[in-house]
């Protein structure tokens, strides 16, 4: 594998969704593992002011050193972009586990650095200056794409992870703190509040007749009556009905 490729991996402190304990984010672990597999020169970065404990997981997975770019957390993208100017390959998770978790950072970086972005990566093969990426698609489909470096690749959380946490590595690892930008809190576009209720879906106000409302109140099963029921004919005739149904709805292509 090419060893002269400069690879940067971006990680964020993640949190367990229930217990709230710090742990690495799944997609970021996968990004780190894919970065290690490339065999290139690896830099691991994070921006913001994470606690040391929340980065311990990445050190234990073999991150070696993590550069912590402290400072202005409200503009993560530009802080990271200036630190990543001359990298060949930037790997990051498709979506963070903490913070905003909006899945926007890869796109913001791509726009700021003017680099091609390949999202949803599961596997990466480097040969020279081209990367061949297997992309996740829903419904069990996989797509192969090719991109010329420098490029940004965002990793899908389902990407296979081969590395394992080792306590010794976590102890050996180092955090390199540096300050960039201002530390003054910048007012965020978003307001935060505790989620004490379920979100309400947007619904149309239905003007129903009294009769329809009464039916709605007494009918069980939401008035669902089911679809077509075929009782007549032998097994072959019924199988033919199914085949026609599958063809009509383009569920098979023969």
């Amino acid at each position: 594998m090419s060893t002269n490729v400069k690879v940067a991996v971006l990680v964020t402190p993640g949190f367990h969704p229930v217990s709230g304990r710090p742990r690495p984010a799944q997609a970021d672990i996968a990004a780190l593992a894919l970065g290690q597999d490339t065999g290139g020169k690896l830099r691991v970065l994070t921006a913001g002011t994470p606690s040391d404990a929340s980065l311990d997981g990445y050190l234990g997975l073999g991150a070696g050193e993590i550069e912590v770019l402290g400072g202005n957390v409200a503009d993560t993208a530009s802080v990271l972009a200036s630190a990543l100017a001359s990298q060949d390959l930037i790997l990051l998770g498709g979506r963070a586990d903490g913070g905003e978790a909006s899945g926007l950072l890869p796109y913001q970086l791509a726009a700021l650095l003017d680099l091609p972005l390949v999202p949803d990566a599961l596997e990466i093969q480097l040969s020279g200056k081209t990367a061949r990426v297997t992309q996740f698609m829903p419904k069990g489909l996989r797509r192969q794409v090719e991109v010329t470096l420098p490029a940004i690749i965002a990793v899908h959380p389902r990407a296979p992870v081969s590395v394992q946490y080792a306590f010794a590595r976590a102890k050996q690892g180092k955090l390199l703190h540096s300050r960039t930008g201002s530390t003054g809190k910048v007012a965020s576009f978003w307001q935060y509040e505790a989620a004490t209720r379920r979100p309400l879906p947007l619904k149309a106000k239905l003007k129903q007749s009294g009769h329809a409302r009464m039916l709605g109140a007494i009918a069980s099963d939401d008035g669902k009556t089911g679809g077509q029921v075929v009782k007549t004919g032998d097994a072959v005739a019924k199988a033919q009905v199914v085949l026609d149904y599958l063809r009509e709805h383009r569920l098979i292509d023969f």
Binding site: V229, V230, V236, K238, L243, Y245
Partner: peptide
Amino acid sequence: VKRANLTLIEDSTAFMKAL
């Protein structure tokens, strides 16, 4: 049957063989 879009009232083995 209420949930299904299409229901076949048939023995499973005979149906599977035919399909």
